[in-house]
């Protein structure tokens, strides 16, 4: 579904990613783990067009999307729930969700049943339904995270990128977020997940890649990575 080949990216003159290659097969959950500053978020940003890769090839559904602006990539069916949530603070929860379906409401994506999907998102995140008319900026961190995920789902994406969905959340909410991720996996949604809680991420994922200083050091089926001593050291090094 999503294919990345030899991706390189830089901030200014500083190269951050070196020859990243990975693939996310249809219906699977793939996770990208690594310590802070390893380049996880940069990879996500390069895939969704928030930054321009310096070289490499990214394709979605067999179509090349390398270097396209983020709005075109979204229209091709890739949704990105960014690091730090980035909800539209002055708009209501409902409006935020509707904007997630912007390509469906305008052009670029099949329209489908937008009101129905909205209702389903509210079912998945009952807290959002209670606050449907509230400004997104006044939500708590956990609620904003739900909103960011719900907003990305409203695209009916072919691939969903989730960047640090548990960041800044209380342990109880982290559990909730992972419960939702497994539920989405059950519905057959293809996902690329970046997480600092590597253990939990590998629990839910089918396949994992470990990023170290902008390079992929190890990759393999999630079950195998969980027991890899080197991987254990890498993420336990950050967590003990």
């Amino acid at each position: 579904m999503l294919q990345i080949e030899n991706l390189n990216a830089a901030y200014g003159k500083v190269e951050v990613l070196h020859n990243i290659s990975l693939s996310v097969p249809k219906g699977k959950v793939v996770t990208l783990i690594g310590s802070n500053g390893a380049g996880k978020t940069t990879t996500m940003r390069a895939v969704s067009g928030m930054i321009q890769p310096t070289s490499g090839k990214i394709s979605l559904n067999g179509k090349a999307i390398t270097g396209l602006p983020s709005n075109k990539i979204a229209r091709s069916g890739l949704a990105h729930s960014p690091e730090g949530r980035r909800v539209f603070a002055t708009l209501s929860v409902t409006d935020n969700l509707l904007l997630g379906a912007f390509p469906r409401l305008t052009f670029g994506r099949e329209k489908g049943d937008v009101p129905g999907d909205l209702a389903r998102i509210f079912e998945l995140f009952p807290r959002l339904k209670e606050r449907a008319e509230q400004q997104a900026g006044t939500l708590s961190g956990g609620e904003q995270q739900m909103l960011a995920m719900g907003r990305a789902l409203m695209l009916n994406p072919d691939v969903l990128l989730l960047d640090e969905p548990s960041m800044g959340l209380a342990p109880l909410l982290v559990k909730e977020v992972f419960r939702i991720i497994s539920e989405l996996k059950g519905r057959g949604i293809t996902m690329l997940l970046v997480e600092q809680f590597a253990a939990a991420a590998l629990e839910v994922a089918d396949y994992g890649y470990v990023l170290e200083n902008g390079r992929i050091s190890v990759h393999g089926p999630a079950g195998q990575l969980k027991n890899d001593p080197a991987v254990k050291a890498a993420y336990l090094g950050a967590a003990h």
Binding site: F197, A199, A200
Partner: peptide
């Protein structure tokens, strides 16, 4: 700090027990 349950939980998130 290292042996504090709360810290371990915070760092390992929801799957503290399993990990």
């Amino acid at each position: 700090v290292q042996s504090d349950e709360k810290v371990i939980e915070a760092y390992l998130g929801g799957s503290a027990k399993e990990a």
